[in-house]
Design a protein around this nucleic acid. Sequence first.
DNA 1: ATGGCTACGATCCGTAGA
Length: 258
Amino acid sequence: MRLASWNVNSIKVRLPQLLEWLAAARPDALCLQELKTEEPGYPRAALEAAGYVSVVNGQKTYNGVAILSRSPATDVVANIPGFADEQRRVIAATVSGIRVICVYCPNGQAVGSDKYAYKLRWFAALKEYLSAEIRNHDRLAVAGDFNVAPEDRDVHDPKAWEGQVHVSEPERAAWRALVALGLQDSFRLFEQPEKIFSWWDYRMLGFRRNAGLRIDHLLLSAALARDCTASTVDKAPRKLERPSDHAPVVVDLKTGIS
DNA sequence: ATGGCTACGATCCGTAGA
């Protein structure tokens, strides 16, 4: 079982790259963020022709999330239940016995801003949601763009970023509160090279300089973490012309054993 | 030097991302 997540920054613009990537990486399920469209702008038919069904929580211009899968997704839940929010940032579904929650966490803009306050409120609501989900689903994966770099080693230049949005202590505390529910950062289950990131600024030759952040994550419940054999970032799509600013993150899970 | 790209929906710039 291969599970992946990718902030595509407009599914309309990125569709050709997405189809190429699906054919090359062949994930069984893929969480997408920043669709920037609602249906009918969502390319459902093209993805079905490529072998993937979709459950979609779309929004015009901003946000928008989906879960693609080879096998049908069931028990679809959009948004964070009980949390009033206009922004379409969450969709959950069960795929091949795994509860998959796709998240596009708020950016936060700047520490102290209204959007930063919203980000922290949003994370508190996510924690409550996941706390219930982990009780109900032994095999739980939470995948997406968290907009938090958990540690300094997830930041290309920790000094320059110190105290900034994405690395500030309240954001990192919100991240650790998710981990404390019993979710593991799959990337850190393995020895990893240094300076692996999942996002690079479009400006200032960010990718060429590897001036990035690791803010896209795949969190796994204990049962799934035990079955996890690899967790990687696939930088290949970021090298293409007109790329998303985020790269896909991928985990492989042993199946048929548990 | 606080800029710099990219996408969107509105025009020929403003908002947002991170």
